[in-house]
Amino acid sequence: MSDTPGTERNPAKKPRTRASGKWWTAGGAAAVLGLLLGGVALGWWAANQTLIAGQQNTVESPDAAPVVALDSSMPDVRGLTRDDAAQVLADSGIAASTITFEDAPSGLPEGTVVRQVPVFGTPSPTAIVIGVAVPATMPSLTAADRSEAVATLSDLGVAVTIVFQYDTKAAIGTVLSTSPAAGEPLGDTATVTLATTGSSVALGDLRRLSGNCRTTGEVSLGGTRHPSAVVCSAQAEPSTSVWSIGARGDQFTATAGIDDDATPGTNATVEVLADGQVVDSWQVAFGKPVEISVPVTGVIQLSVRVNSPDDVEVLLAGAAVAGSDEAIAELEQ
């Protein structure tokens, strides 16, 4: 049969085909757009979660990116420049009127933020103080202890290196010197030298050149027990014993007295000589020992001279020569 003029074949089919095409085009576009928007939103969320979870900046890493908190919380701006810190605070929704910048002497580069109040994460801070580095000089730390010196320099943003040096006149563990010296410009590192104990060697273990002194075990002086002593016989005629210390010692120490087993009332005179010259002398008596401490830096021969009208033995308990670790190691060879 021929087609009727003005009509199309299969009139119900083609309209459905065109309608189906329009539905796919609109629905597909909406789906693609939804995926794109979802990806953007997910990326924004992940980026912000990464910022929040990131570690705070430290002054040791001045080039690190700031850690930004959400909801107008306090960001961490330490290590940034003043201008960058101000921008980060503004980006965090914090009003400039709440921010105070102040100078903070520091060994870090000038203009670096070295401290902040309040701390990172504080919600909606109403008063903020930012410390900005200005040039600092080394403070005087002589005689300070280790913890005090380290704390003082750490507060100035300075990394501290500790070294040790033997010194007979300084208290153990106290500061002998600093580099840079007190009053000099301070950088981000410094060296602090602390006094150390050094070493010592028993007098009885050194080479004796002459005399009648000998080493004994435990003794008692004035009621105090001592694990060892050098014993020197004292008579009316002075008796001298000489040891070689080869200019390697700095201090000679001992507790001098008369043994608690001796006759009460006995006494004696004790002298210490350095290279033949009397350095000091002491009177010792039964029940009344004395403490001896004599500088011997540069001394080659150390001598002890004793005499007594009572013909008694003088004890030098704990007698030892102290010096640097290196010097005493050589002396013991």
Rank of each mutant, 00 (worst) to 15 (best):
I300F: 12
S2C: 04
V32R: 01
K22S: 11
D84V: 02
T4Y: 09
V279H: 15
A202N: 10
Q165H: 00
Q56P: 13
E102G: 01
P295W: 02
V77C: 06
S239L: 07
T196S: 15
V158G: 01
V150C: 03
G223V: 10
V314H: 07
P105R: 05
V304N: 12
Q87L: 02
V321L: 02
R214D: 13
L209I: 08
S140V: 00
R115Q: 05
Q283M: 06
V88F: 04
D91I: 03
A319V: 07
A12P: 09
A31H: 01
A46P: 00
P66Y: 14
P75E: 03
P15Y: 05
E102V: 03
A127E: 14
I52G: 03
I292P: 08
A190G: 09
L153G: 11
V321Y: 04
G211A: 05
D205G: 04
I245T: 14
V299S: 04
S73M: 00
G93K: 03
A229M: 06
G54T: 12
A274S: 10
T7M: 07
C213A: 15
G198A: 11
V68G: 03
Q49D: 06
V132A: 06
Q277N: 10
A262R: 09
T142Q: 03
D71I: 03
D205W: 02
F252Q: 11
G323W: 01
A182F: 01
A268H: 04
T168M: 06
E332C: 06
A285R: 10
L209M: 10
F286E: 10
D84Q: 09
L209N: 11
